[in-house]
Amino acid sequence: MSGETTSRGQTRQETINRKPAAASSYAAIFLSLLAAAVLVLGSLVGATIAAVGALITTVSVYRGRQKGVTLGALMTTGAIVAAGVLGAPPAPLLGATGCAILAWDIGSSAIDIGQTLGHNADTARLEAVRAAFSLFVTSTTATVGYAIYVLAGDGQPMTALVLLILGAVIIIAVYRQ
């Protein structure tokens, strides 16, 4: 009988519902769709690929698959690159990039919170603070990027921008020390 009937010897803890945290999941799905929508302004091909990425993200967030969310984000990145190569203007590209990275960050942290604390735990404040931090970083960097684009103007050489980026890389390298 010990094998056949349900043996419940060891513990009697509740089985935790490990689905992703709800609010963050919805936010991630919305942002991945928004990335595709914004990309429509730049390139239809890019937007189509981004829509597939959003679909992958949605399914993965719903099923709580971390790798799927990353795959969806990479798909959207591919869409942005395709749109850029096809000559999309910078504004939609910046917008889509911001949405894509936010979608990945919030979506993967929704899955992570669900895994650690469970779907039913009180995590509203944790999710809100995390999302606020990510939103701040995204909006700041996107604004800086767009400001550089506007200030540099169309006629300025590309090298100026590349040098700026290089500066950023050096800063990151210094942080790593």
């Binding site: 690159v81 190569v85 910078p90 590209l93 995204t138 960097t141 590309m158 980026i165 950023a168």
Partner: peptide, 22 residues
């Protein structure tokens, strides 16, 4: 890719990525 295809949008998008990396 942005530098090779002279797409200023992609180079600018890189700023967001570097911002996150920092």
């Amino acid at each position: 890719i942005g530098v090779l295809t002279t797409s200023s949008g992609l180079i600018l998008a890189g700023i967001i990525g570097f911002g996150y990396a920092a």
